[in-house]
Design a protein around this nucleic acid. Structure first.
Lengths: 257, 257
DNA sequence: CGTTAGGTTGACTTGATTCAACAACAGTGG
DNA sequence: CCACTGTTGTTGAATCAAGTCAACCTAACG
């Protein structure tokens, strides 16, 4: 198995963008105990009601988060890509309120909650970086509420495609022009709060309009700007800019207003 | 003006439920510099694109968070009650990606971001308590995605009422049986992703079924259990139980798996 | 080579929107 | 005190976006 350095590197690089981390932070992070697990597609990584003993980092592959209403309808809540902590909340909240399932086959690192808690109690800036990560997740949830609540199915689908494209692009996992979207139409429908039949019609419509080109599950975006415009996509909410702009520890502690 | 102790007390009490805080945490929290501001209904507290210089705690009154799509449709994303930090993310993210508006007349305390950052860098457990708060917010967003995406308007309305009732109840601001819901039907519609006309019909329908009784904006719930059942409301996602169950600092630092 | 999961399509239904008018009420100023 | 104005709530009729049901097609796979 690869070393902690290789395994956890992408996640740490992401955190470095969120706060100024030093050698001590780096060392502590790479000393985290973990186990690598592998999940087949559709296998559950987290289950609602779980009292998770460990937090999970995706190493490769994709996962999705969802809830099921009492009537049995499923709503997909977020998509997770390599480097994402999929259940930091598992370490800090007592029980999980949702499910996380493997979308494609994926490998994850499981870090015991106690180690996470120790880490964040002793490394304030690292904690801040992780916290910022969860704030960005929250920001994406807010956009999804808007997507599902206030955009019609066609626009919402374009918005989802734009978001996914940009996130994959930033993570170095896809090109803006085309990538493999490993979701079934049923899963897309569950992310948009529509039926699979309707998702199908929307995709064909987008194809017919030349906004996307499909070949099986490979999606090509011939004209990114056109798709962006239809979606009304403004990537502010992804906070991709979030570099180490927060001031260093302590120096502003005495500021008064 | 009242002292910091009185002003910030409810917020601190909430944080105490989230993590074990000590005298140092308490002292640091109550030493936060702040200014009290008052907002008339509909006044903006945070604006999308803002680079907020201060974070905001609601002291009394209610506020709501929303986004507006390029087509001009508004989606309400969350409701905030006294004690809530409405834009902690303002301190940690560079720009705000949404708006916060006063729902009723409300007073807030504005704490400079630099003071917040200093606080969280030097008080790990307090930071953890605040982080948990943002995780609970995220959990509520997830439920809202589900509410808007997968529940029909009537069920979604019941769910919203259940959530609001429980949150107000826990904060000691309302009785389960009835309270003043200071939202217009248009605002309720914007929270559910429906039109005001439809919100009206749903409310009348609920009234006709005896699930709620209305007198102006006062809502009475004659049979909580009945409403809960129609809504399929499971309050797990509110994490109301979240007491100080996380282990104390350090002692688990050496755990390995 | 049959089985199964995912995708496609048409016909019909329905939950929600749109538009438009009007009622109730609060606030304002003459 | 009442007329005027604006906001919120109410209602009906027409329309539309999305859902439902059901059939069938296609490709992957053991």
């Amino acid at each position: 198995m690869a070393s902690a350095l290789e395994i956890l590197e992408p996640t740490f690089r992401k955190f470095e963008k969120r706060a100024r981390l030093d050698e001590g932070d780096r060392e502590a992070f790479f000393s985290l105990p973990y186990e690598v697990h592998s999940y087949d597609p559709q296998r559950y990584i987290v289950r609602e009601g779980d009292r998770a003993p460990a937090a999970t980092i995706i190493l490769n592959g994709l996962a999705y988060r969802h809830k099921v209403t009492v009537e049995g309808a499923r709503q997909i809540l977020s998509l997770h890509i390599p480097g994402d902590f999929v259940d930091l909340e598992g370490a800090l909240l007592t029980v999980s309120d949702n499910n996380v399932q493997a979308l494609t086959r994926c490998q994850v690192a499981r870090v015991p909650c106690a180690a996470i808690i120790s880490l964040i109690d002793n490394h304030a800036r690292l904690a801040r970086a992780m916290w910022i990560d969860t704030l960005i997740d929250a920001s994406i949830y807010r956009e999804w509420i808007t997507n599902v609540g206030r955009r019609d199915a066609l626009v919402a689908m374009c918005h989802l495609l734009c978001e996914f494209t940009r996130r994959l692009e930033v993570a170095g996992l896809a090109h803006r022009e085309g990538y493999d979207l490993p979701m079934t139409q049923e899963q897309l429908a569950d992310a948009l709060g529509i039926t699979p039949v309707h998702a199908n019609r929307i995709l064909r419509d987008l194809d017919a309009r030349g906004l996307i080109m499909r070949d099986k599950r490979f999606v090509r975006v011939p004209d990114w700007e056109a798709l962006r415009k239809v979606a009304g996509f403004n990537e502010l909410y992804l906070h991709l800019d979030q570099a180490a702009v927060t001031p260093p520890v302590g120096i502003l502690a005495t500021v008064k207003i």
